[in-house]
Computed example of a mutant assay.
Amino acid sequence: MSTNFSPVQLRQKIRNGEHNSNTSGYCHGFVQCNLVMLPKDWAADFLKFCQLNQKPCPLISVSENPGDTHLPDVATDLDLRTDIPSYRIFKDGVMTEEVSDITPYWRDDLVTFALGCSFSFEESLIADGLDVRNISEQVNVPMYRTNIECKPAGPFKGNMVVSMRPFNPSDAIRAIQICTRFPSVHGAPVHFGDPSMIGIDDINSTDYGDPVTIKPGEQPVFWACGVTPQVALEQAKPPFCITHSPGCMLVTDLPNSKLAVL
């Protein structure tokens, strides 16, 4: 399957129901974002949560007004209600369903937060000759809940979610060097090696996404993940909110190069 679409082409395919799966490996060169959509009464506390936890929640954009269905600073021809492959609906902190179109659920008081995603730095790893396993095996990146605590803000609290990519030691060091240049999309890893040290009992049993092959001599390398807000939402229990489904991102028109720190 071809993944060589422009961001606007991929968003159009998603809007037309022609793509409803993860976006890893699509639209090389462009920033992908996690999404959280909250009633405006909850937005200030969530903004503070992001500011206090920039590693898992690097803020890229916030809607200018409640009820806005677009984010003009990150994408043209964007409809937030239809242009993400899959959304999760939460009520009182519990995910109730996953849908491909949130138009029937949309409310005029919703504030949208777009958060950086590790998919954006994957192309830099590949360009350096590293094997990004979830892309080479054509699956969603493996993600896990951890025991790493986030800093609380109002009702928002919880532990960090991480994504994992395996590398041999020399490649892991190179990956750390590369990703340090991208603080707006999670930056350097938060852990590598023994998964149990961050509360992961079985590396082959993911909480989100798909397991990947870890070859002999490789170590799992873990990055902070933008699914972390979904754990915080479970704790805060807002009466209503919407997020992306893990791995199903908003693909923006922003070049990844704009996020790099040289």
Results as ranks from 00 to 15, higher is better:
residue 246 P to N: 06
residue 109 D to I: 06
residue 228 T to E: 06
residue 260 A to H: 11
residue 110 L to Y: 02
residue 208 Y to A: 11
residue 84 I to D: 04
residue 147 N to Q: 10
residue 13 K to Y: 11
residue 240 F to P: 02
residue 231 V to G: 05
residue 51 Q to W: 11
residue 25 G to A: 04
residue 108 D to G: 10
residue 183 P to F: 07
residue 219 Q to P: 09
residue 248 C to V: 00
residue 185 V to N: 00
residue 164 M to R: 08
residue 89 I to A: 00
residue 70 H to T: 15
residue 77 D to K: 11
residue 28 H to S: 13
residue 66 P to V: 04
residue 57 C to A: 11
residue 14 I to L: 01
residue 22 N to K: 12
residue 32 Q to D: 09
residue 219 Q to H: 13
residue 49 F to G: 04
residue 154 G to S: 08
residue 163 S to E: 06
residue 232 A to Y: 05
residue 236 A to I: 05
residue 74 V to T: 07
residue 78 L to T: 05
residue 149 E to L: 15
residue 76 T to I: 10
residue 151 K to R: 14
residue 112 T to S: 12
residue 250 L to A: 03
residue 46 F to E: 03
residue 20 N to K: 14
residue 258 K to R: 15
residue 216 P to L: 04
residue 197 M to H: 13
residue 73 D to Q: 15
residue 98 E to K: 07
residue 187 G to M: 04
residue 170 S to T: 13
residue 34 N to S: 08
residue 139 V to Y: 02
residue 232 A to L: 08
residue 100 S to W: 06
residue 256 N to C: 12
residue 184 S to V: 11
residue 78 L to S: 03
residue 142 P to V: 04
residue 30 F to P: 05
residue 233 L to V: 09
residue 189 P to E: 07
residue 22 N to L: 12
residue 43 A to L: 01
residue 189 P to H: 02
residue 89 I to C: 02
residue 59 L to Y: 08
residue 171 D to S: 14
residue 192 F to P: 08
residue 197 M to C: 11
residue 163 S to W: 02
residue 36 V to G: 03
residue 137 E to N: 09
residue 117 C to K: 03
residue 8 V to D: 13
residue 155 P to I: 08
residue 39 P to I: 08
residue 204 N to E: 15
residue 241 C to A: 08
residue 27 C to V: 09
residue 250 L to S: 06
residue 138 Q to C: 11
residue 246 P to A: 10
residue 85 P to A: 06
residue 116 G to C: 07
residue 193 G to Q: 08
residue 103 T to P: 01
residue 146 T to M: 03
residue 255 P to A: 03
residue 58 P to S: 07
residue 157 K to N: 14
residue 176 I to D: 14
residue 200 I to M: 06
residue 20 N to W: 13
residue 15 R to N: 12
residue 189 P to K: 07
residue 139 V to L: 07
residue 213 T to I: 08
residue 230 Q to V: 02
residue 221 V to L: 09
residue 69 T to H: 10
residue 63 S to Q: 02
residue 223 W to Y: 09
residue 167 F to P: 01
residue 58 P to C: 04
residue 224 A to P: 05
residue 101 D to R: 02
residue 54 Q to R: 15
residue 117 C to N: 07
residue 90 F to H: 05
residue 9 Q to G: 12
residue 145 R to S: 12
residue 55 K to Q: 14
